[in-house]
């Protein structure tokens, strides 16, 4: 008796559900629009976009794979030492040594080529966009929701249009990585430029600078640290895309993890993951130190001169 009443109530309630009558074929519509119009119309444009990325990626990858292991290690360790000091140089050496020891050198170089390509294009696109956003509140207002969408859409979702437009392979994976990793660089470039003191920009104008000169002489140098933080963020996001990139045909360390997962091969998947972490540590430390480096050097120079140069001491006393 009670269940009968309940069923009747439920039927009445379901009567107002639109899905009881018909399912809206939104998926068909999207497919129709994307397949019949979007993809064929825009494919030439997207193919053209693909070309420079393919050139850079191929070039970088063949160079990295051609250079002997020892040379790569020496260059990387020297770069780390110059930019970040002895500690980071040691970490770099140990990490690279380990990456080769576990048999993932080739994969590491492939991933490195992809990351560097993606970040390079992010810089080429992202910094000008950030500058544009910093110069006009209207531009910034247009960019903000777009960047929000780029950052919040799960990366799996836009793998689909990317595959449709660009196919599968390394280059589409790099493009997905660029889309995913771009927003922080645009945001932080914008922020960095806007944070430059108004009086300094005013001084630039008062001393006859054009807007372009103000940008190059005052705003960009002073925003550099914030922009480098953006580059660092972009790099980290790009690394986090390596496994997802493997879903659409990217090689490298991401593919190791993906293959290991597919085969339920815990060990193989784990060393792939370890490789990504080691690469992330090296790149993170070096780029962070590059961002701080300029200021740190200056502080150091100021301090030593203040302590040691006699004329400075005399000047201070006077």
């Amino acid at each position: 008796m009670a269940t009968e009443v309940f069923d009747q109530l439920r039927a009445a309630a379901d009567a107002v559900r639109p899905s009881s009558y018909r399912i809206l074929p939104l998926d068909d519509w999207i497919e129709a629009v994307v397949k019949d119009w979007f993809v064929p119309t825009l494919r030439p444009i997207f193919r053209a976009l693909q070309w420079p990325i393919a050139q850079v990626l191929d070039g970088l990858q063949s160079v990295l794979l051609a250079i002997p292991f020892a040379v790569v290690v020496i260059i990387a360790v020297l770069a780390a030492w110059r930019a970040a000091g002895r500690g980071i140089a040691i970490i770099t050496f140990v990490s690279l040594f380990l990456l080769d020891w576990i048999g993932l050198w080739r994969e590491t170089m492939i991933t490195l080529a992809m990351i560097v390509t993606a970040v390079a294009f992010c810089i080429v696109v992202g910094i000008p966009l950030g500058i544009a956003a910093a110069r006009s509140n209207r531009t910034a207002a247009v960019f903000r929701p777009i960047l929000d969408v780029m950052q919040t859409i799960p990366s799996f979702v836009y793998l689909v249009p990317i595959v449709m437009l660009f196919g599968v392979g390394m280059v589409p994976a790099v493009i997905a990585t660029i889309v995913f990793a771009l927003p922080p660089l645009v945001r932080l470039t914008n922020l960095g430029i806007r944070q430059v003191q108004g009086e300094l920009v005013e001084a630039g104008r008062a001393f006859g600078s054009t807007p372009r000169q103000i940008l190059w002489e005052i705003q960009l140098p002073l925003a550099l640290r914030t922009i480098m933080t953006g580059v660092n963020q972009t790099l980290m996001l790009a690394l986090s895309m390596t496994v997802i990139g493997a879903l659409i045909g990217a090689g490298g360390l991401g593919l190791v993890v993906y293959t290991g997962l597919g085969r339920l091969d815990v060990g193989y998947a784990s060393i792939g993951g370890l490789g990504i972490v080691l690469l992330a540590i090296i790149l993170d430390r070096i780029t962070q130190a590059m961002g701080d480096g300029d200021n740190a050097r200056r502080r150091k120079a100021g301090r030593t001169a203040g302590e040691r140069t006699p004329d400075a001491v005399a000047g201070e006393a006077a």
Binding site: E199, A206, I218, P221
Partner: peptide, 13 residues
Amino acid sequence: ITMVFQHFALLPH
């Protein structure tokens, strides 16, 4: 016409 500013407005870099 040049100008001198209250908080100096020197370029720190």
